[in-house]
Amino acid sequence: MPPPDDHRHDRGHSHDHDHDHGQAPPSDMALRVKALESLLAEKGLVDPAALDAIIDTYEHKVGPRNGARVVARAWTDPAFRQRLLADATAAIIELGCDGGLEGRFLVALENTPEVHNLVVCTLCSCYPWAVLGLPPVWYKSPPYRSRAVIDPRGVLAEFGLRIPDEVEVRVWDSTAEVRYMVVPERPAGTEGWTEEALAALVTRDSMIGVGRGLAPEAAA
């Protein structure tokens, strides 16, 4: 365990997203969790170094860049696209994405000019960690979980996506261990682009279904 006054994680975070956080006193939850972790370490149930390694993995190693590589490969390699749509669990392993936790049964859903797919978990927060990392707060929030199934077009409009009436909206409520990812449509004007350049156009939101692939000029 680090000593009680060790705030190295807090400082690290403050550089990224919250410049006041480093000066703030530890929150009630910070103290409660620290005490809990100390108790479990004393009992030999957890190894603090192993916990830090887990945190590092989820902060820095898994994330939507994995899914973006999968989508970019599907856009450039028709045979891979076929394999991905038939058995995404096996296809992502080809790209070194470990199915592992929250990705043992993965299904890829392709957006087309006729069909727009949207993924939600109304009962909790199921999400394809293997390709997208941990879900954003809004995905786990009551507003999204409650509304995505009854008013998907309204939710999409709030994300700036107007789905024409003639396009079918398919919502996927992740009620089992099967995880869903969306393969967005390839942006126009990207003919001849490399897989790596295309991957930069694939956003997390586009793989949940609340966004589209970025326009080519956004990659500049």
Binding site: H9, D10, H13, S27, M29, A30, V33, L51, I55, E59
Partner: peptide
């Protein structure tokens, strides 16, 4: 990924 340091610890625990 985490808004507060303790959130990562809860995930790891």
């Amino acid at each position: 990924v985490f808004h507060e340091c303790w959130e990562g610890h809860v995930l790891a625990l």
